[in-house]
Design a protein around this nucleic acid. Structure first.
Lengths: 217, 217
DNA sequence: GGTATAATAGAACAAAAGTTCCCTTAACCT
DNA sequence: AGGTTAAGGGAACTTTTGTTCTATTATACC
């Protein structure tokens, strides 16, 4: 039986760190010989042994019979993330409003924000874009100056969500929490200290849904 | 000269999509033979040709002479991200306050949140943990019910940052924006409608710094 | 001290994977 | 139609890389 089932030795630990660093640095797993060199293991068979031990200990997993098949458990994989194009600034000063970029603008953006897929639900990458909030005009929606706002085009309407709302009669686009109320929309600022108000559904367009707000500090 | 410097053919495009999908699904790049099978390319030499074309078009990059060396440009790499352990809930009702887990609690957390490294600056992974905000008691700090708060132990003090502040005389821990003001700390709620107040630096401990706030909707 | 057991080193081997060559087919131009 | 050029197909070849085997050294136990 494998004695190493519980604890791993020092050289196995250093091997594990090397493999993790290698993956983080190079974006792909190392070969056995990469590991031998990088973690100062004396022979290839030792690499193989230690890998077995690490797998028994539940630290790594690897697909046998194929190259570069080692992976450190729990390490994030590229598929856990998406890139979202950065498409401008929300000022909400009435003049600019909330920008709604088209497909071309999305594809050719120069700035891309990496975002965990778990944050954006089942949204397709083509439908997502990011905006930067400017000023404190969205403080009612609990959005602060500098916040990153991730928006989704082609959303499925969900009552009570935050939307980029276009009021065509006032020629104004803002972010508000939206509820359907017969032939009217109830627009409710996110801040509970402010009162909701109603608008006519005919003169109202929901241009995008706020999927996520990120504030780095 | 290579004609394909500008545009890529249809089969090259489908090859590119396959490679991207493969990386996202498997977490490592495909081999030439994987590509041949997966993208229905008739021969290995065609795979090689198309890869050259895609590289000339700036769509991919690859390290020659080593296996699984293809990478789609712009695709996020594991090194772009970190995992942050989820360590409980902030209620801020005076009874619980803001939890401050120790190193062991961090390592053995059951839930891990993937976070873009660009969000957390130069913080080490061991110093980061995540909390879930509960209730609207932190609305003054522009933090809403359900928000994900990423905290950092072992921070370097930065004037004007959001901190988990422990007031030992009141036996209370809350999140506030902090400024040094002689021998006192000025604690300023994030909401500009509320007034700041001062506390004695001696009876005050800064237990952690808020690095990032994430709100999924 | 001797024996059994595990750890180690080194090399050879086998499989996987990248590279190249040559011939065929299609497209294009005059 | 003929010739030139690009695209495609297939296979052989070389390098990279995973696997295994055996002889050797260290360790533990009696």
């Amino acid at each position: 039986m494998a004695r190493q089932n519980q604890r791993i030795t020092e050289s196995q630990q250093s091997m594990l760190s090397f493999i993790q660093d290698y993956i983080l640095t190079n974006g792909r797993p190392p070969t056995f010989r990469d590991i031998q060199r990088g973690a100062n293991i004396s022979s290839l068979s030792m690499v193989s042994h230690h890998l077995d031990a690490l797998r028994d200990a539940g630290e790594i997993e690897f697909s046998e019979g194929s190259s570069r098949g080692v992976w450190v458990k729990g390490l994030p994989k590229p598929g856990d993330f998406m890139r979202v194009p950065m498409c401008g600034v929300i000022t909400c000063d009435g003049e600019h409003g909330v920008p709604t970029p088209d497909a071309d603008a999305l594809r050719n953006a120069e700035d891309w924000i990496p975002v965990a897929r778990s944050l954006v639900g089942n949204a397709k990458m083509e439908d997502l874009y990011a905006l930067r909030a400017s000023g404190d005009s969205m403080i009612d929606a609990m959005i602060n100056d500098g916040d990153l706002i991730i928006m989704r085009r082609n959303f499925d309407y969900k009552d009570g969500g935050l939307y980029a709302v276009m009021l065509s009669d006032r020629n104004e686009t803002t972010l508000k929490r939206v509820f359907k109320d017969g032939k009217k929309f109830k627009l409710k600022p996110e801040n509970p200290r402010l009162k909701p108000f109603w608008v006519d559904a005919q003169t109202t367009q929901l241009q995008g849904r706020v999927v996520c707000v990120v504030r780095a500090m």
